[in-house]
Simulated scan of single mutants.
Amino acid sequence: MSLAIAALDVRLGGRAILSDITLSLERGTLVGLVGPNGAGKTTLLRTVAGLVAPTEGRVNLDGMPLKGISRDARAKRIAVLFQGAGAGWPMQVRDLVALGRLPHRRAFGGLDGADHAAINRAMTRTDVARFAERTEPTLSSGERMRVLLARALAVEAEWLLADEPITALDPAHQLDAMTLLRSVARAGTGVVAVLHDLSLAARFCDRIVVLGEGRVAADGHPDVALTDRLLSDVFGVTVCRGAGPDGTPYILPWNRSGPHPEDIDAAFPHQP
């Protein structure tokens, strides 16, 4: 079962955001989608989710064009987590997570036993069950992100698309979230996560897709995709590499590989 992206172009407001993207994504794999700001990562996730229409190319879900699958059917099969996707009013945490079950419910129907079980599983796995009765405005940014991840997991979809799921999390919960995403993938879900922490991406992801200026700059195992040359060319940084206590390699961005801010200031002095 796969998501196939073929010759995908996306233009928004007359500007090219994505160009000639071709990828084949398989379930059971945690894919890290990385790249500098403005590379088109979120737009790619939104297009794969069917929320943005491609200008050219296509997205197929298990061989069927995504645009030919109804919105309700897509919502059952593809769960999404995007930044700023809260309720917008003081809803209790448990009710917010329960929104993830909407694709499985009949119109005006209540939650059944399967829904409650899915909600409980999602809240336990994301460590938010202990504040189930709190309202969204009382949550910290990190707590809120975990609640939104729980809502996405409650769908129990074939695919999970997560835009910066570890943003605002403290180090312990970042590790928990990455471990959880990997375990979700190991259980058979296809997981694509936009990440900015290159070390966590290299440590936990089975595959890295690097976007640069709207194009695929690299695609493969972290050792293959995150080379020194690519990190310099795409991210503009040099890195330090090492290994953790268990031998797992890590990457630390260390210096800019291009002009430093002070060099730019020297070249273009401020006018009085």
Rank of each mutant, 00 (worst) to 15 (best):
M1K: 06
V10N: 07
R11Q: 14
L12V: 12
L12H: 09
G13N: 13
A16I: 05
L18A: 12
I21T: 07
E26L: 03
E26N: 13
E26M: 01
V31G: 03
V31F: 07
V31R: 08
V34F: 10
V34M: 11
N37V: 05
A39P: 02
G40T: 08
K41E: 08
L45N: 03
T47C: 04
V48F: 07
P54M: 12
E56F: 06
E56D: 10
E56V: 01
V59C: 10
N60R: 15
N60H: 14
L61F: 12
L61A: 08
G63I: 12
M64P: 00
P65M: 13
L66D: 02
G68A: 13
I69L: 14
A75D: 00
K76G: 13
V80D: 03
L81F: 06
A87R: 12
A87D: 07
G88P: 07
V93H: 06
V93D: 06
D95T: 09
D95M: 03
L96M: 10
F108A: 14
G113I: 01
D115W: 11
H116I: 05
H116W: 14
A118K: 02
T124I: 11
T124G: 13
D127Q: 14
A129T: 04
F131H: 02
E133T: 14
T135W: 01
P137Q: 12
T138G: 00
L139I: 09
G142C: 08
R144S: 13
R146Q: 06
L148T: 05
L149M: 14
L149H: 11
L149G: 09
A154P: 02
E158P: 00
W159F: 14
W159S: 08
W159T: 05
D163M: 05
E164A: 06
A172D: 02
H173N: 15
H173D: 00
L175R: 13
D176E: 13
A177W: 04
A177V: 15
A177N: 02
M178R: 09
L180K: 08
L180E: 06
A185D: 08
R186M: 07
R186E: 15
G188N: 09
V191W: 05
V192D: 04
V194G: 06
V194S: 10
D197S: 06
D197L: 10
L198A: 06
S199E: 04
L200F: 03
A202V: 01
F204A: 10
D206A: 08
D206R: 03
V209H: 08
G212R: 10
G214I: 08
V216A: 08
H221V: 15
P222Q: 00
V224K: 10
V224N: 05
L231P: 04
F235R: 05
F235E: 05
R241L: 13
A243F: 09
A243R: 14
G244D: 15
P245R: 15
P245C: 02
D246R: 15
D246Q: 15
T248W: 03
Y250K: 00
L252Q: 12
L252W: 02
P253M: 04
S257H: 09
S257Y: 08
P259G: 03
P261N: 10
P261G: 09
E262M: 11
A267M: 14
H270G: 04
H270V: 14
